[in-house]
Write a protein that binds this DNA or RNA. Structure first.
Ligand code: FE
Ligand code: FE
Length: 967
DNA sequence: AACAAAAAAAAA
């Protein structure tokens, strides 16, 4: 439906998109007018999708007027690519440039299409819009706050210096015909969409930083939709797209088939807890005390806030959190849930449970509901892949998902895309072996994942909202629509906590209800979470020059209870405790750190048919212990740690679960030697526990593995649950312990000494702890600085403390370099993602990551033979693996399960790193790079005896011992 | 020259 140039006015020849002809077909294009009006019309539709919380944030800057706020959003969308109306951009495509020249446009002498990079259209657009607003009498601060949405519509807002440079590049901006055309274009667009009032409103609307972020994200999303050539087809050059933009957008939106957002009912606000539980999860049992307490707490929260649930694993927390999430969604208008977990494996498991809830939870919405799984290997999850790929409103109710495409999009060559932008992404691409960034993960699911109503993923996807990274605004928009649930918060280390706090500030600012679940937290961390959320919530409209005075931050009472439910709402903290369950006494004792003593303790238990778990703090110690026990007990000894390929880890986890889980496993006489992998979420039970000294919370977590299943009958030698703590050099009673060096590296000497002092106390008092009632006070004391231990320890404790404080401070400051600025700190987003070279080089620990990397890295472990690559033989798949193309799906899956982490030693010196990377670079297969799972992965090849070389190191792999690195 | 576990990484 096109005709030859129907519209008068030279501005109609400005272009936004062009399509390079394939096989010599005619050029196609989209005029700037078309693209701007399309994007603006899409924005009007997106406004409803955005949901109440997002709209409230933006409307607050427009005197609470939702319609006025929407029109500001539409205006921003209608101007987003105005920077394409410049010689810098418009000269890039020859045939379009020739047409423009015919219309009277002129290019500066010596213009070359490479000049477009000197003035990216986003930066030009920011400049033009800011100048236009200032010309209309808008003050500079408000003008910048609006203009930066245009400046940031490609994911990175411009910096001050980039904006200053525009003044020196006026020739690329263009005057005369260019300026006139832009003025006419804006007039036409504004009139077409009825945006006159919105334009006038900018004189009084000063957008806050939060609104700037959400509006930028909405513009990006509208732009992506309006740039989809299936929904908004390009037309042959010389013709113009016909039809009313609003109608075009409405048709496109229907075709797009985006599921209607979840509109929760008010049922959860009043219904009985047990009735809700049964209806949402299809169970027949009654709601427990914790679930009731959580539901009550959520109902009692008048404003969006933070709900902190400290309780043991398996206490019905997941169900409790989703009931609370439904309450919040009903109260505050959230469209779904973000459920964040610390690992991909736990996220995979959670998807199944959240799916049940998502299918059962009632709503006023009709049709499908959107859900996404968000983590690196989401594409390998069968549940996720099994969900319908696309949804249409007229089909029956089902869950729709955005599942990654099998293969990257090929054959389309949209030319304008980012052509005038520096090509390096803000994210440092994966370091590849030939030194160039080739890490192109491409899946259609990835981008859509942020837009799903409900998302299950790794907690990283919440933490990433606090990282200075390209398109971080999309993460904000996604989360601002949701109730955020974070599980196993205690697992966050110092580095992650830095990001967790900042992310909570922003969530508090957006009024996003947050449910955080954890084992007992030290009071200090509890307070910091509350402070972060509350600090974000306390914002001042940017039009107010003076900062309003708020009261003191609410203090969280120190309450040694477990389980404990802490609720922050409207600047008030309330706490509830729930039923702690059956008290479990466990006897605790020290054990001398050598093989003889260990054997002597294990022997009677094993002989009597019991089973033993030995947890070591380092892989080295675990392997040593395994090797020492094997001569005595042979096959009865099993080793578990993280330096196994995924295939073996799954195999071992399954075996652990079936052998030591509930039910009758073949557990008699068995010994498991493990690192911290056995501390994680496995529901396994042993008759005796031996553990290295660790911070007390982790010891208690490990203690949770001994006599975990109360109903089980035990051998006489293990009638009482016992935990033996070792990993400390022999000492006289009362002496300062000398902790193992590796343990000190992992946990820090200070925390270990404090933990040892508490254990000495326990032993001196009879050698018993009672779970869970003793947990809170022990955790509190281990993580505070209050005096512990006898007087002779104090010197050592003080020294260790000051070292710990120095290290902690260094880590926090390194982690903070790439952290986003908090809400309310800046008037505009200008430069908000940039980090100066000076800052970035303050320490070698500085990294643009939400988790600290230790220098180790993952490799795919494969066997090399003359006729090609194959899997390690014990995987039982003898196929040769093709390297000239992306292998079949099941091969890719097995490749993903052939991954193992190489320890950090190999990169502990730059010269080794170089040699290691050099070795790995030989196994670079360009055909694999376009696969989402394989792209950028490092490959390590082993010979027939499972040996390989990595720079100066020899590598071995054994399916029962794991990866060994020797030198 | 020793030292866990865990995750991330495309655009209009
Ligand atoms: Fe653009
Ligand atoms: Fe655009």
């Amino acid at each position: 439906m096109t005709t030859t140039s129907a519209r008068a006015g030279a501005y109609h020849h400005l272009w936004a998109k062009s399509l390079r002809p394939e096989d010599g077909g005619p050029w196609r294009w989209s005029s700037l007018w078309t693209h701007l009006t399309d994007t603006a019309a899409v924005m009007r539709l997106l406004w409803d999708w955005a949901g109440a919380p997002v709209r409230r944030v933006i409307a607050a800057d427009a005197a609470g007027d939702d319609t006025a706020a929407r029109e500001v959003a539409v205006l921003a969308a209608s101007l987003h690519d105005i920077g394409k109306g410049t010689p810098a951009f418009a000269g890039q495509v020859e045939p379009l440039r020739i047409e423009l020249e015919r219309q009277g446009y002129r290019w500066p002498a010596g213009y070359d299409s490479a000049h477009s990079r000197d003035l990216p259209h986003s930066v030009a657009g920011h400049h033009l819009v800011e100048q236009m607003l200032i010309g209309r009498g808008v003050d500079k601060v408000s003008a910048e706050a609006f203009a930066v949405i245009i400046g940031g519509h490609h994911g990175v807002p411009p910096t001050k210096s980039e904006l200053n440079d525009v003044f020196d590049r006026a020739h690329l901006l263009g005057d005369g015909a260019w300026r006139e055309a832009r003025v006419e274009l804006v007039e036409d667009v504004v009139q077409t969409l009825g945006l006159e009032a919105a334009l006038d409103s900018l004189a009084t609307v000063r957008l806050s930083d939060a609104s700037q972020i959400l509006l930028t994200a909405l513009v990006v999303m509208a732009d992506w939709i309006a740039s989809n050539a299936d929904l908004f087809p390009l037309v042959p050059i010389g013709t113009h797209c016909q039809g009313d933009p609003t109608e075009r957008a409405a048709r496109a939106w229907r075709e797009f088939g985006f599921p209607e957002r979840w509109l929760p009912t008010t049922e959860a606000l009043t219904a009985d807890a047990t009735a809700l539980l049964r209806a949402r999860f299809g169970v027949d049992y009654e709601a427990n005390r914790l679930q009731q307490a959580v539901l009550e707490a959520a109902r009692g929260m008048a404003e969006p806030g933070l709900l902190l649930i400290e309780a043991v694993m398996g206490g019905g927390k997941t169900e409790a959190s989703l009931l609370a999430a439904e309450v919040f969604a009903a109260k505050f208008g959230c469209s779904g849930v973000f459920y964040g977990l610390p690992t991909r494996a736990t996220a995979d498991a959670m998807l199944d449970r959240v799916l049940v809830w998502w299918q059962n939870v009632p709503g006023l919405d009709r049709g499908d509901r959107n859900i996404a799984l968000r983590h690196g290997n989401a594409g390998l999850n069968d549940t996720y892949r099994g969900l319908p790929r696309r949804s249409r409103r007229d089909e029956t109710n089902s869950i729709a998902a955005s599942v990654p495409e099998e293969a990257p999009l090929e054959g389309s060559h949209i030319l304008d895309v980012g052509r005038d932008e520096p090509s390096a992404p803000l994210w440092d691409g994966r370091r590849t072996m030939d030194g160039t960034a080739v890490a192109h993960y491409w899946t259609s699911g990835r981008k859509k994942a942020a837009f799903a109503d409900t998302v299950v993923g790794t907690i990283d996807h919440e933490l990433l909202a606090a990282l200075r990274s390209r398109h971080v605004v999309l993460r904000h928009l996604g989360l601002a629509r949701q109730v955020v649930v974070l599980d196993e918060v205690h697992a966050a280390d110092t580095w992650m906590f830095v990001y967790l706090e900042r992310a909570l500030e922003w969530l508090g600012r957006y009024g996003v209800p947050v449910i955080a679940m954890s084992a007992t937290l030290p009071p200090d961390q509890r307070q910091r979470l509350v402070d972060a959320y509350e600090n974000g919530r306390r914002w001042v409209p940017p039009s107010h020059e003076r900062r309003e005075t708020f009261g003191e931050l609410p203090q969280v009472p120190v309450h040694d209870a477990y389980p404990l439910v802490t609720a922050l709402s409207a600047a008030c903290v309330t706490q509830r405790s729930a039923d702690p369950g059956t008290p479990r006494p466990v006897s605790m004792a020290w054990l001398t750190d050598d093989v003889d003593h260990l054997v002597r303790e294990i022997e009677p238990v094993v002989t009597a048919g019991g089973c033993v778990l030995v947890i070591r703090n380092t892989v080295r110690r675990a392997v040593e212990t395994y090797r020492a026990l094997q001569p005595v007990w042979g096959e009865a000894v099993t080793l578990a740690h993280s330096r196994f390929i995924g295939f073996d880890r799954l195999r071992k986890d399954d075996w652990l679960r079936s052998t030591f889980g509930r039910g009758d496993g073949d557990r008699s006489g068995r010994i498991v030697v493990a690192t911290q992998v056995a501390e994680q979420s496995l529901d396994i039970d042993f008759d005796l526990l031996v553990t290295d000294l660790a911070p007390i919370d982790l010891i208690l977590q490990r203690v949770g593995r001994v006599h975990r299943h109360l109903e089980r009958t035990r051998p006489t030698a293990a009638q009482t649950p016992r935990c033996l703590v070792t990993g400390v050099a022999p000492r006289e009673r009362g002496d300062v312990p000398e902790v193992d060096r590796g343990s000190a590296y992992v946990y820090g000497e200070y925390r270990l000494l404090r933990s040892a002092a508490l254990l000495d106390e326990i032993v001196a008092a009879g050698g018993h702890v009672t779970l869970p009632s003793d947990v809170p006070s022990l955790v509190r004391r281990c993580y505070s600085d209050e005096p512990v231990g006898p007087p002779v320890w104090q010197l050592a404790l003080d020294a260790a403390r000051s070292r710990a404080e120095t290290e902690q401070a260094a880590l926090v400051s390194a982690a903070g370099v790439y952290r986003l600025v908090g809400p309310g700190k800046r008037r505009s987003l200008i430069g908000t993602l940039s980090v100066s070279v000076g800052e970035a080089e303050t320490s070698t620990d500085v990294a643009r990551q939400v988790r600290r990397s230790d220098g180790g890295f993952e490799v795919v472990l494969l066997r090399y033979a003359v006729d090609g690559l194959s899997f390690l033989p014990h995987l039982g798949d003898t196929r040769r693996i093709p390297t000239d193309r992306v292998p079949e799906r099941d091969v890719v899956r097995l490749l993903a399960r052939s991954m193992v982490r190489v320890p950090a030693v190999v990169t502990s010196r730059p010269e080794w790193t170089d040699r290691v990377l050099n070795d790995l670079s030989r196994n670079y297969f360009s055909a694999w790079q376009r696969d989402a799972v394989l792209g950028g992965q490092l490959i390590l090849l082993l010979d027939e005896s499972n040996c390989g070389t990595l720079g100066p190191f020899q590598v071995t792999y054994h399916d029962e011992v794991g990866l060994g690195v020797q030198w």
